[in-house]
Each structure stands twice: as C-alpha cells, then as structure tokens.
Design a protein around this nucleic acid. Sequence first.
RNA 1: GGUCUCGUGGCCGAGUGGCUAGGCAGCGGUCUGCAAAACCGUGUACAGCGGUUCGAAUCCGCUCGAGACCUCCA
Length: 494
Amino acid sequence: MKEHNIKPVVYLFNSLSRKKGTFEPLQPPHVGMYVCGPTVYGDAHLGHARPAITFDLVYRYLTHLGYKVRYVRNITDVGHLENDADEGEDKIAQKARLEQIEPMEVVQHFTVLYHKNMDQLNVLRPSIEPHASGHVIEQITMVQKILEKGYAYEVNGSVYFDVEKYNRNHHYGVLSGRKIEDLISNTRTLSGQSEKRNNFDFALWKKAEVTHIMRWPSPWGDGFPGWHMECSAMGCKYLGTQFDIHGGGMDLLFPHHESEIAQSTIANGKPPAHYWMHNNMITINGQKMGKSLGNAMSLDDLFTGNHPLLEKAYSPMTIRFFILQAQYRSTLDFSNEALQAAEKGMKKLLVAAAALKHLTPDSSAPSHGVSSIVQSCYTAMNDDFNSPVALAALFDAVRIINAVKDGLSQINIEEHEVLLTLFDDFVFGIMGLLPEDTGREHEVVDGLMQTIIDLRQDARSRKDYATSDKIRDRLQSLHIEIKDGKEGTNWQLK
RNA sequence: GGUCUCGUGGCCGAGUGGCUAGGCAGCGGUCUGCAAAACCGUGUACAGCGGUUCGAAUCCGCUCGAGACCUCCA
C-alpha cells in the first residue's frame, strides 16, 4: 500500500445490505470491479457519463490507495430485447435494418463515439472492455451449466431461468427487495411469455426468428443470449466466480442485477459480487433522463451547445466537475444554471491549481493548517466516495492559495509541498480534472500574450490609458481576460 | 396497484441528534487610473403538522409533494 498518514479504510454503501460498511477486498491488494457498460446502439448521452465518471472515480481512488484494481466494463453489442412495436427484436438488429447497414457497423460506429466522448471526459479506459458478441461461447456454456443443474428449461429453441425453483432455496429479490409473490401479479406480458412456466422467468437464450440478423448457433438452434447473460459470463471469465465490486446505474438493479445474481449463483454455486454499487440518475426538470424518454442529451450536444435546452456549450471538464459535485447516490438535476455554476467553480479551482505552482514559499510563514485539508479530502473519499465534500475541502485550499498569490498571506515550504501533492493527487489524479487550455501552441500564445501585456504596461506607465484600454477591450472581445494584480498582470481565456 | 427513495437558503449540493459544508448568484467593503480577478465581511435553509429528547434538518408517526423500479434503459 502507498504510504499515507490517513489509514485508508474505505466505507462504501452496499446495495445488497443497504448500509455503509468497510470495504474489504477478497484478495488484497487486488480488487475486481465489474461495471455495466453501454449498449452501443445510439449516441453516448449525459446518462452514460454518470456511471462512467462515478466508477472512474472509484477506480482512480482505489488505485491511488494502492489497490491493484482490475476494472472490467463491458460493451453490449448483441442488444437486448426491444419492447416497442418490434417486440422481441434485437435492438442492434433493428437499428441496422433501419439504416440498411451491418449490425456490427452500427456497433463499431457508436463504440468509437463512446470512446471519444469518454476520452474527452478524461474517463480512464477500463482494464478490460469485453464485447458481449465476443463471448457468446462463454454465455452458451453458462446456460448449459444452469440447465444441467436443473434451474432452466428449454422451450422451442429458447432457454428460460426457472425463478420459482430458484426462489425455493434462494431469495430472488435479495438485491431489489422484492418478493416473488409481488412479482406474480406485476409482470408485463412479453412475446414468448406463453413459453414460460411463469411470467417472471427470464430468458437465458432466445431463439432467433428468421428475420433476426444477429444470431449465433447454439445447442438449441440459432439464437442470441438473454439480456443478463453477458455480464455474468464475462464477469466470471475475467474476475472469477466471486469478485469485489459490481457497479452500474440504479435502473439496472431490477431485473438485470437481480437476475445476474440468480443465474451466477446457480452456475457457480455462489453469488458473484460482495459489494453492489449503484449510481443514481441524472434528471431534467426532476424527471429521469433517458434514451427511451426522448429527453436524453447527447454528450456531443453538450460539448457543442447544439440542443434546444442548452444556453451554451459546456466543456467536458465542466460536465465532469458537475457530476463530481454531487455524491454518486443522489439524483443530479440538470439545468443551465447549475452547469454554469459548475463551470465557474471549476475554473476557480483550476486557476488556483495553476497559481499554486508559481507561489514563492516563505520559510518563516506560519501554518495554515493545510494538513487538516488533506485529511478532510481522504475522510470524504473514504466515506463512500463523497466527492462533493472533498471538493469543498479543496476550495479551502483555494482560498489560501489566492491569498498568498495576492500577497495577502505567506505560505511556508512544507505546506506549499503538501498543497502541491494534494492538488496533484486529488484535483488531477483522483477527480481526474484537466486544465482545459493545454494545446501545443500554448507556449507561443503565452509569449504573444506576454508581449501584448508588456506593451499595455508601457502605455499605462505613460498614463496612455486610451491605448491600454484599447488593448484590453480588443482582448476582451476575443474572450481574453486581463487581470492586473500586485505581482503583475495575468490573463486567461473566458 | 406493489416495492423503494427523496423533499435543505435565489440555484446546485453536502450534512443522520448539539459544533460555519462548499460552489454559483446577490449585497457591503478592500485593491485598481477605471474595470476584471482576487481577498474580507454578509444569509435566524432544512415541505407541513404532531411526537421522542435537556436538545432534531438529522429519530418516530401522519399529511402533502416529487421521483425511481416493477418493461429495454446509465
């Protein structure tokens, strides 16, 4: 483990117990984490950013603490069952038919787009990113195991999980808090239902109709895997039959994760994950944002400002900061006002981070109590990854940095070092924020700006304010902000 | 209908029994040729009603309101 003053005891909220508890990996220092990734049949939207950033934070923080994390996040490219007019048709296949192109072409297109957007958000790539389509054999094998154990039945080329039988000696509903009796009256009528023994049984393998494009051969004929199979099969393949953390959006709690638990428990003799973590939803006007609700905002829309709900474009880092300003288990309400507040707050933090590097420490300066800020950051993150509280602590440091920068206070060498480390670790390493103007032309621009600032300074010393104001106004119209301070003049892009 | 969650100041958002969360916006001041930025100061916020307690935003009950899941979804 990396050396820290703070004992790295992480408390996390486990959806299984609905309580916070200490995080104890099965095989420390190794941590296995599986997170449900995107179905690549449409643009990546704000809703995809939340789990990606949430679990990126978890990944970064656990890694920072010294854990060796294997982070697996899947790409769903075999589709799930659609539930509109084309009931039962594979999502990917449906889109492909519409566009008259190959399903895998659709998959490729949206996978590339997803990766691009995630890179923009500075979300680290997971250790392994398995595709469901590349693991059909593993899924078939797992279905066979469940059949052998007698917890599934084949009907007409499809295989279903026998929930009622499972529930006799297990609890189908441990995760979501449901009771099987409640499910009986509440399950919707779906195609193929008549084949099922009970309408709450779920498909492990589904027969492909002749028109179905995406299909694979199996012992039960041509078909495709059931909705929950891929995560169980791939999680098991790369992390073992039991691993530490399984994550995803709250909307996946039931039936997806519940069913994963059931089928893995039968296939492997034990439930798959020790800790289940679920991020909450992003809302628009208090309502969940979702692809199927038609109110989803794509990440490209956000980044370009090209959407009727958007007053302006918001940078990827603004989106990241916005998401980190809420604890992952809370809903986060979207609005232009909130996004603009996040934008300004983040800028303040990043400007201070840059200024920190150029502070001149004073060996005789008294202490600012910086170590308590460091402690607060760790305490916050250890408490179920409470990023907003950690950010609040960082803003305490911002105040100190600005005071020193303005010559209103001094900082000693030790505390300067502590702050440099803190910002490297937390702002950049753990929160994953990036300064936004890190172009290659940066140095040139810097030089040009310095020249202009010097000229303006000359004018000012001649009291030629007409010229100095003209320079400032022209720069202003280019969204370059001139800031005169005690230590000289700075500039930044607005 | 069933299961569950939430309701915090102008906005976002932490906080789970007593100690200033924080950010944005606003107001007053310092600095500045003017400004911007920064800094300092500034808000009797916890949906309502009742209960427990020396003490409740925090625990309990009820009422009202909002949302999620039960169907693919992050």
